[in-house]
């Protein structure tokens, strides 16, 4: 008798659908919680400043707390739990290497964001000091490539194919996007090309296509 296999049941969402729902609930719910928390903090601060601690203040704050708790509960309630099944050592180690690469990359974003006060701090073109530049380049060029190479050696052939196909599409996106933008810029239709926007666009195409190839 065949064991119950989640992937064989039509009503079970695919891995990709589970991951997408997690992303949507995590980002959407997280932003909503952040918004409500900010609203509560702002409302409480205004009340403290004005000295208005009446029944109305308590009632409104209580409603806000209830809404916050309701959103948190809804996130927990609708969070896709996945299949909770055994995993091959190769899959586990590949995931751990990827997480390590992301953790090491995080300081790059944090330092870049802190280096510029404007809204686009991470991708700003504003000058930075030599110390920051050397630190960021060292972080980006030494541990991250080593970890990504280790990850590449650990992924199975299906994921490697998905990654390779995503890269192929991304290179073609680069191939068409860059000259078109350059020509449009020379005609005066759009601003001059920003390498980081092109970099981001290529990364997004690569990730989206690779994700779709792996999970759908």
């Amino acid at each position: 008798m065949m064991k119950l296999d989640p992937s064989d049941l039509d009503q079970q969402p695919s891995d990709g659908a589970v991951l997408l729902r997690r992303g949507l609930i995590g980002v959407g719910g997280g932003l909503l919680l952040l918004f409500i928390a900010s609203l509560m903090a702002g409302f409480s601060y205004a009340a403290i400043s004005d000295g208005n601690f009446g029944l109305v203040f308590i009632a409104i704050l209580a409603v806000m707390v209830l809404v916050f708790a309701g959103v948190a509960y809804a996130m927990w309630r609708f969070w896709p739990r996945g299949h909770n099944e055994p995993e091959a050592p190769r899959v586990k180690s590949a995931r751990m290497i990827l997480i390590a690469a992301m953790v090491i990359s995080m300081p790059v974003g944090i330092i870049l964001a802190a280096s510029d006060d404007s809204a686009n701090g991470v991708f700003s073109n504003a000058p930075i000091t030599s110390v920051i530049a050397i630190s960021l380049i060292a972080l980006w060029l030494i541990p991250v490539p080593v970890l990504t190479w280790m990850w590449w050696r650990r992924v199975d052939e299906h994921e490697a194919n998905a990654y390779r196909d995503g890269g192929f599409v991304a290179v073609h996106a680069y191939l068409f996007l860059t000259p078109a933008w350059w020509i449009a810029s020379r005609a005066g239709w759009v601003p001059a090309q920003d390498p980081m926007i092109v970099f981001l666009a290529v990364c997004v195409v690569w990730c989206c296509f690779g994700f779709a190839r792996k999970y759908f």
């Binding site: 064989d8 091959a88 999970y215």
Partner: peptide
């Protein structure tokens, strides 16, 4: 065997 069981035997992901 489930797909996950076979994946562990082959040292690949269940998606594979």
């Amino acid at each position: 065997w489930s797909q996950a069981d076979l994946a562990v035997h082959l040292d690949v992901s269940r998606q594979a």
